[in-house]
Design a binder for these strands. Sequence first.
RNA 1: GGUCCGUUCGUCUAGGGGUUAGGACGCAUCCCUUUCACGGAUGAAACACGGGUUCGAUUCCCGUACGGACUACCA
Length: 512
Amino acid sequence: MSREVRVRFAPSPTGPLHIGGVRTALYNYLFAKKHQGTFILRIEDTDQARYVPGAEEYIKESLDWLGITPDESPWNPGNFGPYRQSERKPDYMQYALDLVEKGHAYYAFDTAEELEAMRERLTAARVVQPQYNSITRTQMKNSLTLSAEEVKARLESGEPYVIRVKIPRKEEVRLNDLIRGWVMVHSSTLDDKVLMKSDGMPTYHLANIVDDHLMKITHVIRGEEWLPSAPLHVLLYQFFGWEDSMPEFAHLPLLLKPDGNGKLSKRDGDRLGFPVFPIDWNNPSSSETAMGFREQGYLPEALLNFLAFLGWNPGDERELFTKAELVEAFSIDRIGKAGAKFDIAKAKWYNEHYLRAKSVDELQQFVIQDAQKEGFEVSEEKAAAMVRLTKDRVTFPAELWQESKFLIVTPSTFDDQVASKRWNADAVKVLTHYAERLQNHSGEFDAETAKNLLAASADAVEVKLGKVMQAVRLAVTGAGAGPDLMEIFAILGVKELANRIRFALDQLPVNG
RNA sequence: GGUCCGUUCGUCUAGGGGUUAGGACGCAUCCCUUUCACGGAUGAAACACGGGUUCGAUUCCCGUACGGACUACCA
């Protein structure tokens, strides 16, 4: 029985999408595309209290940025809508009622206080698992303990109620996870989870199963945090009589803190100085901004490649994959079982790789825009030259401008350390001579010419060029290290170069 | 606490009953280079522990330790 592959990514809009969620979306996407299937985005907004405005748009923008575009979503509906669970609200009750009719679920009228009292009582009695289950439900207020008349009366009076699943007392629940193999759980360790809340909304468990069934989902690829409730979901499929079309499950290993142990959190990012969200998130209630990979200068193709390899590998030694290549190579059975620590150094390496792979044309825009932000107009030609000079030395696009802005902004200060070490009488002699030569120079001035002239100056004053190179660099750029000096000279041009040298000669005291 | 999941270099991982346990990031050294990077080369660096099974276990089994997730009218 091979059905058309349909997978879904089902986040709840309670805040910014965590990078782990992005990876889950990615794996779903890759799996769908690999099998010419459909990738669906479904918004699980059944918890009204936790709904955060803007979170949905954030999810959309994040996925768009990375090119993990859903084939069906609230913004691009297919034939299985709506794609927001809040909009599917009217449908869930009938399914819950169906379960009640079949004897797999029941009404419960217990108040929050009564539930709390029950848990306290059980804890005091040292019951290992204080939960609403096959044993404790006999002492609670529900349609299993109350008479039919009373249940009817309570329902008709409008008393709040929930619908709970009736977990069988003794049953072995088996589930064949695509990543972990057979997982077996005894039903006695499960509790009678709420299916319908008193506000008329379904819980995750009900909505998830109903929607996956209705949307003809074939594979549920989600985070490992769902593994403990997967047996409940299997049971639900059985209760509904949907075993035949039950999707396959694949529970992904978690993303862990880079140091120490535990799940990767926003705090880790703040503490260690790297993002854990795909794009910037402006918290509407605190007006704080959580940094995103995009704004920090990570390229989407780099983040994608990095994320794909956190828990998956193709089985050979290739590590550089475009999105299309990932689709081609992806398979669930090559996903690892153990959690992966988040190592930002590797992400940076990927970024460098993809940055270098970009053409000068693509990159020069970054320079032009960054310069503009600081009030400088840089021509395309100049920006291209600046990119050529720096692209092999930086990690992020923003560094392109930072590392080459000295070409636009004449240095007014000079690195003290380098000055005290390298600035000497020989340097002054060479530079003085060179400045004069430059003034008289006419015609082409390229790197080659610049170098020949400089070498001639050194010769003329009988100084070894190598001895004064760093001082020359200091005079022109203000720093002791940087890109190829002669290329810099060529870009600067004779006039600006001569000016800078004279300025340095004027500013720096001669010692030695 | 209980249930479930996991454990190969610092990190991401390959591998699998007999291997010099492979690659990548990072790190170190060297080469290239009139600097710093890039690039190239080399190197240090791992099978959590204890029992089995076996001629042989890092690999299979069982325990232990450690780690993680879950344990809501949250997802």
